[in-house]
Write a protein that binds this DNA or RNA. Structure first.
Lengths: 112, 112
DNA sequence: CGCTTCATGAACCATATGGTTCACTTTACG
DNA sequence: CGTAAAGTGAACCATATGGTTCATGAAGCG
């Protein structure tokens, strides 16, 4: 199981809409801090902080090239998050199939 | 696609190890605030706050029974989070298969 | 009834977060 | 060279977060 601090950082990084949109943007390829800041209507300094959060979470990798900084998608952290979620989702589904589910879910959906 | 504010709440709720362990515990069935607080070495008040965060995120459902409060796993929010992650994971994988990935990963990072 | 237990709410505290502005460095380029 | 552009760092600000203590309320029980 993944280290708790790693999950903390990953989920925390993902909990901001600006940062998620950065990841979306990076899905189309690398971008500079400026190119990320502009559509977000944010200062370079502000976006730099977001990128740092993503980088610390391992969701993004950066490299200084010339006077700008290239930002691109990182490795494997989304895997960690999804592994955790799918594990507990199985727990949750098992629960819904159990007796307690029937008991607490005021007899709505019997078969599914 | 899911509303941004919902994802904010869900990921934010998941970004705390205490809250994740609460979800783990609830995988074994409902529990009271006190039963959740004790293993966490935390006051009732503190745990109550965590439960409220999970409840606002829809990850948990509570119901007052007698003088205690039953907490159990909620519905469908883990689905939202996983849907988002798996979508962007596909983006990310596509990227790693592309030319840019080969290009940027092969040349060692000189400066930083 | 009177006491204990579980939960709750208010107040408080320290630290983290998300943003800004301003000053500065490094790089590009005419 | 001189100037503009991209980024960086420090300082600052408002609000959120994660926790506490203390006082109160409601439920159960002998």
């Amino acid at each position: 199981m993944v280290h708790e601090a790693i999950l903390d950082q990953t989920f925390s990084a993902l909990s901001d809409a600006t940062r998620r949109s950065v990841l979306t943007r990076l899905g189309d390829g690398p971008a500079t801090i400026g190119e990320l800041a502009e559509p977000a209507g944010m200062t370079l300094t502000g976006m730099k902080k977001h990128v740092l959060v993503l980088e610390n979470a391992g969701l993004v990798v950066t490299e200084k090239v010339g006077r700008s900084r290239q930002v691109r998608l990182g490795t494997e952290r989304l895997d960690d998050a999804m592994t955790w979620i799918s594990f507990y989702q199985r727990l949750w589904e098992r629960r819904l199939d159990g007796l307690d589910a029937f008991f607490t879910l005021q007899k709505g959906r019997e078969n599914e």
